[in-house]
Design a protein around this nucleic acid. Structure first.
Length: 634
RNA sequence: GCCGAUGUAGCUCAAUGGUAGAGCAAUUGAUUUGUAAUCAAUAGGUUGGGGGUUCGAUUCCCUUCAUCGGCUCCA
């Protein structure tokens, strides 16, 4: 019976009998076949040598597709485990998935893997790759699987097998002397992995739970060619140059100091200027969007934190209490209790709602020492916090406005790519199912209405309400949360918040917490990394540097500076006794957007030159022409 | 907090069981310069902190702090 295979482009191929996916690929092109890592038959990912026995849709995956890459890296993890088992047979294997960039495998081993160990493993992987060992699939029963891994003494595998529901197929993959429990699919043979590099080793808890034993994880990456490996290494180098910690030091934006304390930021003048610009823009936008500004204290009495519940569910993240005249005070880890206290300072009519209260509120949280990371993760930070208090029938409108507002602001800073998540009710939660449904639905409906793509994080909401998070990626692709929009069913209750409705009865309002930038610190870091330090012109602390060639032009340079300042540009003069090449180099390294080199000619003619960072000389021009050129970018 | 690595001048890095050196930056002087580094001199360090071993520690050991990469959590 002939078989018809439909390819992704819609074209059909007919074969007289069953044929393997590999053979189909080979017929399309031998190069495709050699690049193929797996097949997708009727939307199911399978090994490339799988036989196709009926009419099917077929996709051939190579390293170029997302699924192909994942399989490739997953197979690389198996290869690494094989090498480790050969080198240290006593080591137990656990799990080893593909990740966004590469793969890892967790091993149970007493000692950590040293750098020399990693090199040894890498060498062994290359040898195994050269042997082109086929990955072969076996399906077996639960009992058989338990027996096999039990005989090998692989306890972790048995735990995993035992958790597989009865009736589900269990499969293993074998390459050479190595067998691993695995759903698959896998690449056809180890020779497909051409370039491999083990990047680092670290500790990781079994199942990510710190109550469990700490395993030893090895991270690696692999590619079908050395060229791709080289490119990846170059990418890592480039990323290191964009690291906000390096830029922060080189551009004199911020620093940390041992004596001040870990995770506590010192904003230097240039960094402070950028922050000021961000915050002014933020303030303007909030006033334009119907928010009212408030200011609240940095500490509050323990009573407040009891009312809010933070002492119950958040104390481990709070700085220790301080005693003032026999009263306990806490540094604030969040702003909400203060905002709610403002709300509660008077009665509210439904006519006043929604109330939108915003504050750049500085909070302090105790973060475990191992998690601090530059400005991304600190102990004292400023949230661009706001609380929206509204009636149930205002919710949808508010949520939708919020998402638009958030995305508009982020885009203004140059961001274009976002990861959006909708998190739903966790196991332990306050609030009724109706409340959760209503809130979750309005979040979802708003995202849908705005045509935004998002991922669900089932059970990932806070215990007090569902939320939308928007994340932005840093220089090496790690996603950092910025915007968060969270419903809160907990605090309105605890603070006994009310408004008087049209029925003259007291009602409980809906409360939404939200931060758009998230924290100014983290946002600043992501912004720096995203732009590699070359922030949009409106955010640069010095927008132009005037470089007189000799002392004779300093007077003229000052005139120009005055005129530029009147145009609202931040402009400095480098009047040092240095050669022009030196001053240019320094201004370039400081990433100053515009330079104007002023010599005898310009001073006499009353004109100026312009040079753009990264572009070079733009030539001589009249002052007005230069202003126009600069303002094009603002 | 846990696993591992690291910590030498402002920055990037070197060196040794006999108490440290380079480049850049800084300071001073000379030079007045035309689109990415002018020349010279000077100064700068309890080698993260504390303790131990040793005749002697920056080097070896212990401890502590911080940083980096992960785990976990989250703005």
């Amino acid at each position: 019976m002939p078989i018809v295979i439909t390819l992704p482009d819609g074209s059909k191929k007919e074969y007289p009998a069953a044929i393997s996916a590999y053979d189909v690929a080979h017929e399309i092109s031998p190069r495709l076949a050699s690049a193929a890592v797996a097949a997708e038959i009727n939307s199911k990912l399978v090994d490339i040598n799988t036989m196709i026995t009926e009419d099917s849709d077929l996709v051939i995956h190579t390293f170029k597709t997302d699924a192909g890459r994942e399989i490739y890296w997953h197979s690389s993890a198996h290869l690494m485990a094989q090498a480790v088992k050969q080198l240290w047979p006593e080591v137990q294997v656990t799990i080893g998935p593909a990740i966004e960039q590469g793969f890892y495998y967790d091993f149970d081993r007493e000692e950590a893997f040293s750098d020399e160990d990693l090199l040894k493993i890498e060498e062994r992987m290359k040898e195994l790759s050269a042997q082109k060992l086929p990955y072969s699939r076996q399906e077996l029963s639960k009992e058989e699987a338990i027996k096999i891994f039990g005989d090998m003494g692989e306890h972790y595998k048995i735990v995993i097998i035992e958790e597989i529901p009865d009736g589900d197929p269990i499969s293993t993959y074998t390459q050479g002397d190595f067998i691993d429990l695995c759903r698959g699919p896998h690449i056809p043979h180890t020779g497909v992995i051409k370039a491999v590099k083990l990047l680092r080793s670290s500790g990781a808890y079994w199942r990510g739970d710190e109550r469990n034993k700490m395993l030893k994880r090895i991270y690696g990456i692999s590619f079908p060619s050395n060229k791709e490996m080289r490119q990846y290494m170059e990418f890592l180098e480039e990323a290191a140059k964009r690291d906000h910690r390096k830029l922060g030091r080189d551009l004199e934006l911020f620093s940390f100091d041992d004596e001040v304390g870990p995770g506590l930021v010192l904003w230097h003048p240039k960094g402070a200027m950028i922050r000021h610009l961000i915050e002014s823009y933020w303030t303007d936008m909030h006033l334009q969007n119907g928010y009212e500004l408030v200011y609240t204290p940095h500490v509050g009495r323990s009573k407040l934190w009891e009312t809010s519940g933070h002492l119950g569910f958040y104390e481990e993240n709070m700085y220790a209490k301080m005693d003032v005249e026999g009263q306990d005070y806490y540094l604030k880890p969040m702003n909400c209790p203060f905002h709610l206290s403002i709300y509660n300072a008077k009665h509210h009519s439904y006519r006043e709602l929604p109330v939108r209260m915003a504050e750049l509120g500085t909070v302090y949280r105790y973060e475990r020492s191992g998690v601090l990371h530059g400005l991304m993760r600190v102990r004292g930070f400023t949230q661009d916090d706001a609380h929206i208090i509204c009636t149930p029938d205002q919710v949808s409108d508010e949520v939708e406005k919020l998402i638009v507002f958030a995305l508009d602001m982020l885009k203004h800073f140059g961001f274009e790519e976002f990861l959006i998540y909708l998190s739903t009710k966790p196991e332990a939660a306050v609030g009724s199912d109706e409340e959760w449904d209503m809130a979750t639905q309005s979040l979802r409906a708003s995202l849908n209405k705005l045509g935004l793509e998002f991922d669900m994080d089932e059970g990932g909401g806070a215990f007090y309400g569902p939320k939308i998070d928007i994340k932005i990626k840093d220089a090496i692709g790690r996603a950092w949360q910025c915007t968060t929009i969270q419903f809160d069913f907990n605090e309105p209750e605890r603070f006994n918040m009310e408004y008087i409705g049209a029925d003259n009865q007291a009602h409980r309002p809906i409360m939404i917490h939200r931060a758009i930038l998230g924290s100014v610190e983290r946002f600043f870091a992501t912004l720096l990394e995203y732009h590699g330090g070359n922030l949009p012109l409106w955010l640069m602390p010095t927008q132009m540097m005037i470089l007189p060639i000799t002392d004779a032009q300093i007077e003229y340079a000052k005139e120009i500076q005055e005129r530029l300042r009147k145009e609202g540009l931040r402009c400095e003069i480098d009047a040092r006794n240095e050669k022009i090449g030196y001053k240019i180099r320094e201004a370039e390294l400081q990433k100053i957007p515009f330079m104007s080199i002023i010599g005898k000619k310009e001073a006499e003619e009353g004109r100026i030159t312009l040079r753009r960072h990264g572009e070079g000389d733009l030539g001589v021009m009249d002052f007005d022409e230069a202003i126009q050129r600069i303002k094009e970018e603002l």
